[in-house]
Design a protein around this nucleic acid. Structure first.
Lengths: 336, 336
DNA sequence: AGATAAATTTAAAAGGTTTTAGATTTTTGG
DNA sequence: CCAAAAATCTAAAACCTTTTAAATTTATCT
């Protein structure tokens, strides 16, 4: 069964392809097609169940109605929740989403962007970038492609973005810990730590300590590598427990680290020693409602990142934007 | 800056568009283009950084190099892990993934399939269908579109699929419970229960009981509705605890239910009463490694669903398939 | 060298839409 | 009833590839 095309409808109806195309694109009035004709066309098209060939349309208009989403890992619930919300908004507007993961690899991110823009012809791109700086994106090649950055910002780069107030959330939770009489708060950070979210959280951690007239002890800030997360967490925990300074709390900069820490704490060698230590986590996950330990956390409005960024990219695509738009969403402290 | 096109390369090089197109598509030898010419073309194209217009190519060839993925909810880790693995395989082969969520809604699934096939022109579709039966998919409209079904099968439908051995896994875990002297095993199922995965798990549960010469007590099988999961679980738990029959174990048919049950068990009213009850879960999640309670679970080879289904859809797309392919992946019992 | 065969290369068509510029029909005014 | 204006409608071009069918160039053989 051959696909129906404009020509077929044209012959059946006795109107030109032009006219039918105009009506279908909602430009009937604009081009002065009479009400009666428009109705007839719409009715016939509905009956015959015709839909325009996507490629021909894209070729002619240069619009694909595709938006790309590039994140580190789509199987990470944080990003998949964002994806879900983006997709819902786009679908409403007749757009589609194309998702790819970089695996936190800069070269892979490059390839994906190139591919999406050059070959796949996306109309716009939403990116949680792994890059250290914006060099790649400031390239004039991308000047014409709408971009919205999410989750992470690139330094010195005037771009559209939708992010969380990582600094503020971090200040709030560390403040809270100190008010609860945790004077010595260790921090489990993650490598690569140049990523803006992590940078901001560390800065918030430090500034909260300073504002409370306490001293920042660099030896309490531990770097955890993403691909050896469990091992690194256990080693850092070991160091902390063996050191002479007693620790009141450990603040984990993301949910992966918190999870790893919780797993570590189930081991015999840590269980007792660390039982008094408070645990705080940037990013709140379901898990914290199930376990016995009372985790203090900062929850992020993940859905809002998706909704905001998708609405924003549509505005940019449709030329409804004048200035770059910078959205910073507030976090919420969750005590337990 | 206007996009480079075949014509520009042609003028610069002094070869026809035809020739350049042939070389770029790797058909140089097939059409007898000399080695020297081919090299010259490739070099020039690389230097000028030309990439063919995707839409023009798709229009001419009818191939989009897009595969669609339709699942109930892309923010569910189960599906997002599948998505990640599919995407990785497709990317290797020059294909792209387009993901959409149905929200477990049949009408929405219809719209998505129609849209992907008719308007977006995907080359193939991977679907975890929400439908009760295959009527929609047996429609001749879709006869020409490659489909691979995953996770769930539709009854009486001769199609390609990649699924888990839900029946076998269920038998194994219930068997294990009974061997551990849990004679009375309650079952928390989920509505809609016509979904093949759930059906198979319930059948496995029943058959394991029968094979062990015990009686199936229908009153121990509780239906949990997906959208009121927490409330329903607590109500069912309440019923069980109040009834005269003592329960040895509760078997939850998916990780959402298990999680809800674990949350419920933290409440004062249940905590003590249920402390002796063993908990079993179809689908193993990280959480089980962190909490104190020893959860017995069946783990599913989630990555393999993604890998297998994507390789399969590519075979179908490329006409390398003769008969429908049915893949059933084994589960693994995890004792704790 | 001339005719034929083999090796390279290319012109033109096809794919199905949207848009521009222009044609045709209908209405209006005198 | 005719000319001009307004209202509808349409032919053809454009979008940029890939592929078919044919042309041109080079090699081979007598």
């Amino acid at each position: 069964m051959k696909r129906l095309q404009l020509e077929d409808i044209s012959k059946q109806l006795g109107y030109s392809k032009t006219l039918i195309s105009m009506v279908l694109n909602g430009k009937g009035n604009q081009y002065g097609i009479s009400k009666k004709t428009q109705e007839a066309v719409l009715k016939a098209v509905a009956e015959l169940d015709y839909t325009p060939n996507k490629f021909a349309r894209a070729l002619r208009t240069g619009k694909s109605f595709f938006v790309g989403l590039i994140v580190a890992d789509i199987s990470n619930p944080f990003y998949s929740t964002i994806a879900k919300n983006i997709e819902a908004v786009l679908f409403e507007q007749g757009y589609n989403l194309m998702v790819c993961s970089t695996g936190e690899n800069e070269e892979h991110e490059k390839r994906l962007v190139e591919m999406m823009v050059n070959q796949q012809g996306v109309d716009g791109l939403i990116v949680a970038s792994t890059f250290k700086n914006a060099d790649f994106y400031t390239n004039s090649r991308y000047a014409n492609t709408p971009f919205v950055f999410i989750d992470r910002v690139l330094p010195l780069f005037n771009a559209n973005y939708v992010v969380i107030d990582n600094y503020g959330g971090s200040i709030e939770i560390v403040n809270h810990l100190i008010k609860q009489n945790c004077k010595t708060v260790a921090c489990f950070s993650i490598t690569p730590s140049y990523i803006s979210t992590i940078e901001d959280r560390i800065n918030g951690y430090k500034d909260a300590i300073i504002k409370n007239k306490l001293k920042v002890d660099e030896s309490l800030i531990k770097q955890i590598r993403f691909d050896t997360i469990q091992k690194d967490v256990e080693q850092s925990l070991n160091e902390l427990l063996k050191s002479t300074t007693a620790i009141d709390a450990i603040y984990c900069l993301n949910n992966n680290i918190t999870t790893a820490l919780l797993i570590a704490l189930r081991k015999k060698e840590f269980e007792k020693l660390a039982s008094k230590i408070k645990i705080a986590s940037f990013d709140d996950i379901d898990l914290f409602n199930i376990i016995d330990r009372k985790i203090i956390s900062v929850s992020q409005p993940i859905e809002d990142i998706g909704k905001n960024s998708s609405l924003l990219i549509l505005d940019v695509i449709n030329g409804k934007q004048t200035n770059k738009s910078n959205v910073v969403l507030s976090t919420k402290l969750i005590e337990r």
